[in-house]
Structures are given as C-alpha cells and as structure tokens.
C-alpha cells in the first residue's frame, strides 16, 4: 500500500519537475541540465547557434549531480557532468557519454594586495588547507612557497561547493592523488568537508570568495576571470610552476589516452609533463542510447556536432580547450549507436 503510494509520490515529483522544465523550454529548443563548470562556454555556443540556426538551448546550470539525476528522470534531452559515469552505471541506465570540452579548475584567493598568479601552491599544501591542517595564511608551508609575497597573519576561510559537483569530484580526485591524508575524506561529487563554508555552484563559490577576505576556493577558470578573482599558480607533478592557460590545459590533455576507457571516462588531474596544469578536467555529455524522442536527440547531436566543428575558437576565448581532432571523430562515429526505438540511428 505504502509502496504504491510512494511510486505515485515519486512519479508526481518527477512529473512536477518535468513540468517545470517543459514550461521553461520553448518548442523546438533543446533542453539540457547539469555541470556548472562548462556553463560559460555552453551559453556562448548556444547564443551563436541560435543566431545561426534559430534553435535555442535551454541549459540549467545546476551541477553535475543534478544533470545525472535529470537525464535519468528523462526530464531533459541531455545531461552534462564533469564526473564521468562508470561503464556499468552507463549500461544500467542505457546512457552513452562523450567528452565535450576541457577546462582548468583553479584555486582562487581573496587576499588584499595579492595579484592573480602572484601566489603559488602545491597540491599537498592545498590538500592540507582543505583538510584543516593549515589554518593560517602565514603558515610556514605556504610562506616557504611564496617568498616575497606579503601573507597576512589571519585565518584561512576555506570555501567549497555545497552542492553535488563534478568540479568537486575532479578537485577531490587531485587532492587524493597528491596527499595520502585525503583518503579519509574520499572522492565524490559531494563529500563531507572537514572545514569551510559551502557555496552553491561555481557561481556561489565565486561570490563567497569575492565577499570574504582571507578566503580560498576552487572554481573553473572562466569563473575566476569573469568575477575578477585572484587565482593562484600551481606546482605540478614535475615540480614546475604553471599558470592556468590554454597551453597548460592542452599540455595536461596531451597524454590522455581517450580510447583506453569506455565512455571516454578519462580523468586529467595530476598529469605528468613540465607544462601540465594539474587540475585539468574534461566535461561530459550524457544522452540515451535508445531515444523516445529521436527528433530532439537529432537536434542535440547536431548542436554538439556544430560545437565540435565551429565552437573551438569560442571555447578558447573563455580558456576552455576543445577536444583533439581524433577524439572528435571517434565520438562522432559512436553517435551512430544512438537510435530511436525502432533501431534506426537518429542522425
């Protein structure tokens, strides 16, 4: 009895959320939801695509966890996540995933007098800050890396994501790779943070860091640029100091073997190479293999195909790195597996 009630209730909840999405999207538009990490570049692509084709994109920048949830509930045409799903999870849900674009997660600080790129941190120090073991800006471990930078004798206000986030997943993945102490916290889209305050979305973290003196946070690089936040350089696996840039993201991506993991689920954190930015991440699109609405799926694939072909320059303007040519052709070939219910490819 209660069980059937629950199904009704859940169905009702989904129906309501579907309704919300449906009313937000206009006829003929593509709807998607998920990661906030690539939202700036998706928004830019959508704008240009609308001008060219008249088809708009309604993208809800709600976080990777939300994107996975919404595509599983079939309330959107595609989901977006920075946390690649495991092959088993993809198969169970009947989803397929492909990488869309790569970007950098950067540490941002709010310290009066410190300019972007003036500070540098190692992954280990960053992890210790987020574990709550380093609590002051003038801690010897930080000052040793930053000779000549005036660091205050004040507490570090640690800012993290309060929502389920692929950015968090990639960030935690990196911290776990460089600091053995991180294993007690774990790696996931949402984790139990030992210290700090939470902001919702990359936007929320940017706002909190911008507002709170003495704070440190992690955001996608485009958010640091748009909000004029002070980013910090990183010392990478090869012990070299690198700044977030197209070049350093490309360097990190250069070694990646995309074909090695089903669903292209490659994680680009802590890659070797003198120029590699250590917190590089790819972001993924999730669509159903068997489509109930083949027309919508066709529009989605057309849009992303267009973005692969023509979106590179726009992505680079926002310091995102387009996928390499060979990956694009692999992905496009795999799109033939996306079919309608009668087994005919949608494209």
């Amino acid at each position: 009895m209660l069980k059937s009630f629950g199904k009704f209730g859940r169905a009702g909840l989904f129906a309501i959320s579907a309704l919300v999405v449906a009313t937000a999207a206009q006829a003929g538009d593509i709807s998607g939801a998920g990661a906030t990490f690539p939202y700036p570049v998706y928004a830019k692509w959508a704008d240009a695509y609308k001008k060219e084709t008249g088809i708009g994109l309604n993208y809800q920048s709600i976080g990777s966890g939300g994107g996975i949830k919404q595509i599983k509930a079939k309330t959107v045409d595609f989901g977006a996540s920075d946390k690649p799903l495991k092959p088993a999870e993809l198969d169970a849900a009947g989803l397929t995933q492909f990488p869309m674009v790569m970007g950098a997660i950067v540490p941002v600080v709010n310290l009066p007098g410190v300019k972007p790129g003036e500070m540098k941190l190692t992954g280990k120090v960053l992890a210790e800050i987020y574990l709550g073991n380093i609590t002051k800006w003038n801690d010897p471990q930080i000052t040793a890396l930053n000779k000549g930078v005036k660091l205050p004798d004040s507490a570090i206000a640690v800012v993290h994501r309060s929502d389920g986030s692929g950015t968090t997943f990639n960030f935690a993945y990196y911290l776990n790779a460089v600091d053995s102490g991180w294993s007690k916290v774990g790696v996931d889209a949402s984790i139990e943070w030992p210290v700090g305050l939470g902001g919702k979305g990359n936007e929320g973290v940017s706002a909190l860091v911008g507002q709170t003196q003495g704070s440190i946070g992690y955001v996608e690089y485009a958010y640091a640029l748009q909000n004029k936040l002070t980013y910090s350089d990183m010392i990478n696996k090869d012990g070299k100091t690198v700044s977030p840039s197209l070049e350093s993201i490309q360097a990190a991506a250069a070694n990646a073997d995309w074909a090695s993991v089903p669903g292209y689920g490659v994680i680009l954190a802590d890659q070797p190479g003198a120029k590699s930015w250590p917190m590089t991440a790819a972001t993924f699109i999730l669509v159903y293999k068997v489509q109930d609405k083949p027309e919508n799926a066709k529009e989605v694939l057309n849009f992303f195909g267009w973005a692969y072909d023509k979106g590179g320059k726009m992505a680079e303007d926002l310091i995102y790195v387009p996928m390499p040519k060979n990956v694009v052709s692999m992905v496009k070939k795999s799109w033939s597996e996306i079919k309608d219910s009668s087994g005919k490819p949608v494209l």
């Binding site: 949830k69 919404q70 389920g164 949402s190 919702k200």
Partner: peptide, 13 residues
C-alpha cells in the same frame, strides 16, 4: 535541502 536535493545521487542520500 535547497543546496543538495537536485544534486543528490544515490537512494540513501
């Protein structure tokens, strides 16, 4: 709830 509900993956969460 406002922060996490849309994002929570996993039944127990």
């Amino acid at each position: 709830l406002a922060n996490e509900f849309t994002e929570a993956d996993g039944d127990i969460y």
